[in-house]
Amino acid sequence: MLTRKIELLVGVFLLTGLAAFLVLVFNVANIEVKSSDSTYTIKANFTNIGGLKVRSPVKVGGVVVGRVSSIDLDPVKLVAVVTVVMDKRYDKFPETSSLAILTSGLLGEQFLGLTPGFVDDDVSMLKDGDKIDDTRSALVLEELIGQFLYSMGSKDK
């Protein structure tokens, strides 16, 4: 029957559309199921975040363990406050860990590098809402060149 054939083809059409959607969602996009159960949040202050953006990755030894979820300015201290959402699977970082804004490659995008600190008896692990004090700001090329020229000048004297 003609209508059966049409129904069949329309079914194929709808399923193909759905398949394309699933391909785009799971194969192309980087969705992370972010429920508060599987993540925890930490904060850090930076004097200069350079080119860091919301959703920039947080890496430990090159492995992505979290992402920047928001960037604000502390209205009193006038420093950048970066909020990071960390994956619960990686929750064994000591409080003494440090965060640095690094650049992938010479001109690549910027990310947060997390360096685990020392573990001691009176050092607890990072947990939700904690703040990392040991941070290193982004290297800004102009400042680097300025420092370099300054040190060259002082050496001449």
């Binding site: 059409f13 709808l14 193909t16 559309g17 759905l18 398949a19 394309a20 959607f21 391909v23 785009l24 192309v28």
Partner: peptide, 9 residues
Amino acid sequence: PLLTLMFTA
């Protein structure tokens, strides 16, 4: 929209 998804994929 379905055609668009197919086109893009």
